[in-house]
Each structure stands twice: as structure tokens, then as C-alpha cells.
Design a binder for these strands. Structure first.
Length: 222
DNA sequence: GACCAGGCACATC
DNA sequence: GATGTGCATGGT
């Protein structure tokens, strides 16, 4: 099967198995941006705790985050791990959006996607995955988010080898699929769902669709 | 106690 | 340009 067809077949497979995921798990644009930083190399359960702390402190917004003192902000996000680093990153991201658009994200609408992407990538603490998560889920831009699950699944199914970098994988998925906001949204969310469903809290992970090349087995065709 | 989780910046070779 | 390392909590 050609890669392009395989990539769409995998999507269809996941969608049929799990249904729409309606991502991101967050209510506001700012909450999504904050969550995107906090979830770096961290389980969502821990991020949820940090988001709850911020919410209870009335700090689940960029303006307040920017004003909080370093020790207070760090202590609020402590459950999400790497709290000293993430305090700096979160502040940098908050300051960027506040200065760039004053918290009015509609002002960014006229910017070309790649221009906006490169600006966000320059912010301290924002790498490709965080930038693309923000673009796709917070700013409604059609970019494909590549994450650890995407890499694992893609390698196991021969879409690319284990040295493929972020940009080449993103390019592969984007060129193989219609550039659709909802498609990119669901695809990434479904891959995360797949990972959570089969790679965590489960012994014998090697049999899961992410780790097996037998994707079309009955593993997710229940 | 070891290992993992929706990365990233920085140092070193 | 590739590879290694620090960052840290909470669950399994």
C-alpha cells in the first residue's frame, strides 16, 4: 500500500474504533496554550492537577500568569513536573502572546500560517510540537501535530525509519492528507487515544497497535 | 526501585 | 549536524 493511502487508512481505522475525540481537552484558547506547555514530556493527569491549581488561583489566563511572581507560579504548576523550567517557558509564552496580540487572538488571523509558526517557534520553551499544538488546537490553524505516539506508530508501520525528524514526519502527513482542520485535529487526538488505550496501564504493551506492525489485526477492531 | 509520560534548551563532540 | 543530558512530578 502506498504511504499516502496507508496514512489515511490508519486514520479511518482509528476513527472507526474510537470515534471523534473532540480535542483539545480545555475550554478556552488560553487554557489550551497553557496546557500545551505544561504537557511537555508529562502525562495529562499531572497537567490536569497543575491546571486546576491555576484555575483555583484565578490564574488560568496569560495576563495573570505574566504578573505572578516566579515562586508562586512555579508552586502552582508543580504537579506537572519540571516546574522551574516550565515556569520560565509559560511566562515566555504568555508574554509573547500578550505583546504580540494583547490577548486578542483574532488579530493573528491575517498572518500566514508559516509566518505565525516561525514566530511562535522563536519563543523560549516552544519547540515544534508545542508550537503546532498551539497552532492547531488554540488558533485553529491546519498543521499536523507530530508527537511521540506519531513517531512510534509511523516507525512500526514503515512510514519512515527511526531517524526521521519532526519536520519530515509533519511534511509526510500533511502532504498525504487533505489540509483539513478537523482531520488534523482528530488524527492527532486519535493517536494519543490509541497510545493511552494500549501503551499505558497495560502489561504486555508489545502487542498493542503502536508497537506492533500488525495494525490491521483485531487489536482495535472490536 | 525502575520505568514512563502528548519536549525542549543547551553542551559537547 | 548528530548525540547526550538535565529538568521533576506522580502513576504503574
Amino acid at each position: 500500500m502506498k504511504k499516502k493511502n496507508l496514512i489515511f487508512a490508519i486514520y479511518k481505522h482509528l476513527f472507526d474504533a474510537f470515534g471523534p475525540q473532540h480535542w483539545w481537552p480545555g475550554d478556552t484558547t488560553e487554557e489550551i496554550i497553557i496546557g500545551a506547555v505544561l504537557t511537555q514530556n508529562t502525562s495529562w493527569e499531572n497537567v490536569r492537577k497543575a491546571l486546576d491549581n491555576l484555575k483555583n488561583a484565578g490564574a488560568l489566563n496569560l495576563e495573570t500568569i505574566s504578573k505572578l511572581s516566579t515562586p508562586v507560579l512555579a508552586s502552582l504548576i508543580r504537579p506537572s513536573g519540571y516546574y522551574n523550567i516550565k515556569e520560565k517557558r509559560l511566562r515566555a509564552v504568555a508574554d509573547f502572546f500578550l505583546s504580540r496580540c494583547g490577548g486578542d487572538f483574532s488579530r493573528l488571523k491575517s498572518l500566514p500560517l508559516e509566518k505565525l509558526r516561525s514566530e511562535i517557534l522563536e519563543v523560549y520553551g516552544v519547540g515544534p510540537e508545542t508550537a503546532d499544538s498551539i497552532l492547531l488546537y488554540a488558533l485553529d490553524r491546519p498543521v499536523f501535530v507530530v508527537d511521540a505516539y506519531t513517531m512510534r506508530m509511523g516507525r512500526r508501520h514503515g512510514l519512515f525509519d527511526d531517524r526521521a525528524d519532526y519536520e519530515s514526519v509533519r511534511s509526510l502527513f500533511e502532504s498525504s492528507l487533505d489540509r483539513s482542520l478537523t482531520l488534523f485535529n482528530e488524527y492527532h487526538a486519535l493517536l494519543v487515544r490509541l497510545g493511552k488505550e494500549f501503551c499505558r496501564k497495560r502489561p504486555g504493551c508489545r502487542n498493542c497497535p503502536l508497537h506492533s506492525s500488525r495494525f490491521y489485526s483485531k487489536a482495535i477492531c472490536r
